[in-house]
Each structure stands twice: as C-alpha cells, then as structure tokens.
Amino acid sequence: MNKVKDFLGKNTALVGLIVLILIITVIDINFIQISNLSNVLRQVSINGLIALGMTFVILTGGIDLSVGSIFALTGAVLTKMLLSGVDPVIAIILTLILGALLGLVNGVLISYGKLQAFIATLGTMTLYRGITRVFMDGRPITGFKSDLVNEIGRGYFLGIPIPTIILIIAIIIVAFILKKTIFGKEVYAVGGNETAARFSAININRVKMKVYTISGFLTTIASIILASRLNSTQPNAGMGYELDAIAAVVLGGTSLAGGRGRVFGTVVGILIIGFLNNGLNILGVTSFYQDVVKGVVILLAVLIDRKK
C-alpha cells in the first residue's frame, strides 16, 4: 500500500489524469467509448510529437518557440512538392530533412551564436512564419493527390490510428535515448549544470544542436500527419502549438530550469491536454471557456507540483 502511495505521490500528474478521465466519464458516459478514445489518441499525436521534442529542449534548460512556424513551413513545402508531382516518398524525406535543418539553425544560434534560447527561437519563429507566408503568398495550398501520404494521417493499422502508432514508436525511442545513450545522459547534464558538464569534457554545443534538431524533426513528423489528414496546409498552421507543447512538458513535471524530468511525465501531460480538450467538446463547453478551464488546470497542476 505504501508503495502505491509513494508512486502516486511522485506522479501527481498521473493522478490528475485519472481523476480527469473519471470526472468526464461520470458526466458523460460516451466519453469512454473506444471510438472516442481512439479519436483522442489520434488527436494528441500532433501535440505529442512536438512535446517530445520540446522535452529534450527543456531538459537542457532551453525552450523552442519556433515549433509552430516550423510546423507551417514544412507543411507548406510538403504540399507544394506533392502538388508539383514530386514522388511522395522523396517529398516526405526532403520535408523531414528541411525540418531538421530548421531546428539545427536554432541549435547553431544558441550554441555557437551564444544567444538565449528564448530570443533565438522567438526570432526564428517570426522568420519561419514570414517565409511560410511569402512562400504560400498568404493562401492555403490544397488538393494534392497521394494515397500514400493521406494514409499517414487517416489510416489505421490493426484498428489503431497510424498517427497514434507513430507517436507510440516515437515515445519508445525518445525514452530509450534519454535513458540508455550517452547523448541522453549529456542532455540531463547540460540542463543540470552546464559548466560542470563542460568541465567534464562534454561537448555542450553539440548537445544543444542535437536537441533543437530533434525538436525540428519531430515537429515536422507532426506537420506531415496534419497535412496528410487535411489534404492541405494553411499559412497560419501550427500557431500556438509551441505553448501546448510546453504546457504538456511542464504538466509532466519537467523543470523549465532543465536537468530534471521524464518522458513518462510528458506523455501524461499530452494525455491530460488531449482528454481535457476532447472532454470539454463532448460536454459542449464553448471554445472561449475551454481556454479558461485549460489555463486553470495548467496553473493548478504546476502549483501542486511546486508544493511537493
């Protein structure tokens, strides 16, 4: 019994998630239906992938505000390529490379340019969004034809939505990297005490470049999923996504100061936000009030975490 208590004490976010699911279920039993749950799991895959990348960044003590703009720009480039008849596989590979490079730019600015992460990514957030609008001439790009690409966002495998499968695989890989590789240990060390890490012969700059590249890369996977679902990309796609991702990471108990946190926490954070959005929709709460509720939940969660 004590063990259970101990576990729950350390995982307040998980307790919060369970309570949340129970409350919504009691109010409306439809919530717990398989079709709805599977729907939620597909919806969270986009924020989930971005939040996983954000977890790396925040663990090093950084922040990535540019993910929403990377999301839009990569989506735009992908749809444009598909419309111009580029082979879907090649288009996807090129898009992923582009996303990683956009992230790498952040990494270079922050490591070699010695800019603060907040400033650097605030700059690229605006820059990438601007490029997106120029590139799209301010209009959505729609109507590409590719069954393969559409399958990524809409398909099912063994009854599970493909975006969900992608997210689960990403979670496993990320957890493994953080726990079992040198790079993972270095990420925590840089966030825990950057100077001590440097004095321990760790290549700080390389670690930073890698985390922002990963953030860009995972964001691009999310972007491909949405483009494939909607069969189009909007110039304003991904606006505010950085905040949802940061919220998920913080809800999961990862410290914004860096050095402390787990992938498991982020996963719980992603689910809390996902179920909250879905639950409020089911209960017919209007979108204005949804934001109010979300804001309160985030603040409460962080406050409870502080108290410990």
């Binding site: 060390a189 825990g192 100077t195 001590a196």
Partner: peptide, 12 residues
C-alpha cells in the same frame, strides 16, 4: 559550480 551536478546522483 564546475565540479558536480548537484541534482545528479553519485553514480551520474
């Protein structure tokens, strides 16, 4: 400041 990561375990 430079020698250890205070929040890390002895092993880490």
């Amino acid at each position: 400041e430079e020698g250890i990561v205070l929040d890390f375990s002895v092993v880490d």
